[in-house]
């Protein structure tokens, strides 16, 4: 019983952070800022949901898969964010007007 309550609490927190991530995806101005919200909150939120599943299920087949899922999300989600951000910058998608500095652009221009 207590295990289920704790697990549900983790799932609730996870869903909350997933919601913040989605809200950031809608509200923030450009692709790079949106990626920030999407990677951080969604990684943490999904990890929270999976951890909740693990706590409810315990060390059986189901719970173990949830734990492995956390590891895979932590490893792959930042790499995907890096790939998207780099591709966006290389194909010339502009940063938002509020941007104060772009040292990546400066260095690339020096090389060309």
């Amino acid at each position: 019983m207590t295990r289920e309550v704790i697990g549900m609490a983790f799932i609730l927190v996870g869903i909350m952070f997933d919601f913040f991530g989605v809200l950031g995806l809608v509200r923030l101005p450009d692709v790079y800022n949106r990626l920030q919200a999407a990677t951080k909150c969604v990684t943490f939120g999904s990890a929270g949901i999976l951890l909740g599943v693990f706590i409810i299920q315990g060390f059986n087949n189901f719970g173990f898969k949830a734990l492995l899922g956390i590891v895979f999300i932590f490893l792959t989600s930042p790499v995907a964010a890096h790939a998207i951000a780099r591709a966006a910058h290389r194909s010339g998608i502009p940063l938002t007007k509020e941007t104060v500095v772009d040292q990546y652009q400066e260095d690339n221009e020096l090389k060309d």
Partner: peptide, 10 residues
């Protein structure tokens, strides 16, 4: 990438 406010681009 996963820590406050920063995201690795390249």
């Amino acid at each position: 990438t996963l820590t406050p406010g920063t995201l690795t681009v390249d």
